[in-house]
């Protein structure tokens, strides 16, 4: 009866099985979880994992997007379309509302809004009494993320305490919280950028068009490629050029830069990812470069 297993799972199957297990633990342990869905590639993978975890049933959580108001329209359209196709409830909460309430105060109108998302997120958590937010963060993205648990405890101020994390052993995740506290659950913690693209390829997942090579007006600014948009206009003296680019990450317009690329299909992107010499965030995130500890700092303040 008891037989020796000779088959093992491929790495993508293994990562998928682990992610499904984590989502089901959230569903089994938490009363009011929510899945954060931005329309970005990682959260697109998460939706596929959720389908595999819960179909033919409905997802045991709604989807939610924290909109900074500075998102590419293609991504917003894709977000709405994808939620509708799945027949799942999508909640959108926007930074603009927090600004109206006076809980987000920008230093200047063109200040990057990424870090202020934390405020709107915490307000939405309070509004819906969410006890767990499922997010698509990966440990390979950044060194503060490399230290984070799969189920990461946040106190009632949404703070992460990196020096005193809840121990997490085997696959015995502990998502218990008191009222007002919450868990951030990261089912694809162990995926790398390459795994994400290979999964998108294997599962034939649709993505917002800006992930693929397209022509875009840009300027070069201190080593980065900065897209020229209504919220990120060219500065005087900068030369606007048309470049074939794609986005490796998609976030707030003011802090996400594209890379020069002619990869217009998923398989070309997989190839490019295998041979790139620049890290995902290094190339594309203008907000992580301010100091060695930017992400750690933001996470302590309730950021994802």
């Amino acid at each position: 009866m008891t037989t020796l297993t000779k088959q093992t799972l491929s790495h993508l199957d293994w990562l998928e099985a682990e992610a499904i297990h984590i989502m089901r633990e959230v569903a089994g342990q938490c009363e009011r979880p929510v899945l954060l869905f931005s329309g970005g590639k990682d959260s697109v993978c998460m939706l596929r994992v959720a389908e595999k975890a819960f179909r033919p049933g409905k997802f045991p959580f709604p989807l939610m997007h924290i909109d900074t108001g500075h998102n590419y329209q293609e991504v917003i359209d894709f977000r709405d379309k994808r939620a509708a196709e799945l027949g799942e409830r999508l909640i959108v909460r926007s930074l603009a509302d927090s600004m109206k309430r006076g809980t987000v105060v920008l230093k200047s109108p063109d200040e990057p809004r990424n870090k202020h998302q934390s405020v709107t997120l915490l307000e939405a958590i309070a509004e819906f009494e969410f006890d767990c937010c499922i997010g698509g963060a990966r440990r390979d993205e950044e060194k503060a993320r490399a230290k984070e648990r799969v189920m990461s405890f946040r106190d009632e101020f949404g703070q992460w305490d990196p020096k005193n994390q809840r121990p997490e052993l085997w696959n015995l995740y502990n998502a218990r919280t008191h009222r007002g506290e919450n868990i951030r659950a990261f089912p694809i913690s162990n995926w790398t950028e390459m795994d994400v693209w290979q999964y998108i390829e294997r599962e034939k997942l649709e993505l917002p068009s800006i992930y693929f090579a397209h022509h875009r007006p840009i300027v070069r600014r201190s080593g980065s490629i900065v897209p020229v948009t209504s919220v990120t206009p060219a500065r005087s003296g900068e030369e606007i050029v048309d470049m074939l680019v794609r986005f490796r990450t998609v976030g707030d317009i003011t802090c996400t830069a594209p890379v020069e690329s002619d990869a217009d299909t998923v398989s070309k992107i997989v190839l490019e990812t295998a041979t790139t010499t620049i890290t995902e965030r290094g190339a594309t995130r203008l907000d992580d470069q301010t100091s060695d500890a930017s992400m750690e700092q933001r996470k302590k303040e309730g950021y994802f």
């Binding site: 440990r139 390979d140 060194k143 490399a146 230290k147 990196p162 994390q165 913690s189 790398t192 390459m194």
Partner: peptide, 10 residues
Amino acid sequence: TIDVAYRYFS
């Protein structure tokens, strides 16, 4: 090192 860090290579 205080806490576990996870790193990936292939």
